[in-house]
């Protein structure tokens, strides 16, 4: 009997785990991913250097061209970063919804589907 209890306890703990430790694990995972993307995009480095000319060219035209290129870079990188944020948010929200969605789907398939 004890063995059956030990095994079922593991399986029954699943829903509790899903909405506690599991979710926090998921959030940390996506948090790390977002941080890595942020580092890779180096948005702050581009913003900090917005007025610094590129390739060490210090004439007036280089200043202007650099500023424009950097501005475009910042806009594009910001857009990519926002997409990453959106992906993270969706992933984090999907986690608690996933079991509900799949059980609702099962409900439809058994009781509410088209005959």
């Amino acid at each position: 009997m004890n063995i059956i209890w030990l095994i079922s306890r593991e399986i029954l703990a699943w829903p509790f785990w899903w909405y506690s430790y599991g979710w926090s694990f998921w959030m940390k995972y996506w948090g790390r991913w977002l941080k890595k993307q942020g580092h890779s995009l180096a948005l702050l480095v581009w913003i900090k250097n917005i007025f610094v000319p590129m390739y060490g060219q210090r004439d007036i035209w280089s200043f202007i061209i650099s500023f424009v290129v950097r501005l475009v870079q910042i806009i594009v990188r910001l857009a990519i970063w926002l997409i990453c944020v959106a992906v993270t948010v969706i992933a984090i929200i999907l986690w608690p919804l996933a079991p509900l969605m799949i059980f609702y789907y099962l409900y439809i398939l058994y009781y509410g589907g088209r005959k």
Partner: peptide, 19 residues
């Protein structure tokens, strides 16, 4: 959403995916 066994199988397998 047809109530047929392959789709029901799919749905249950997703439950097992989460497990």
């Amino acid at each position: 959403i047809q109530p047929v066994w392959p789709l029901r199988w799919l749905a249950w397998s997703v439950v097992f995916d989460l497990l």
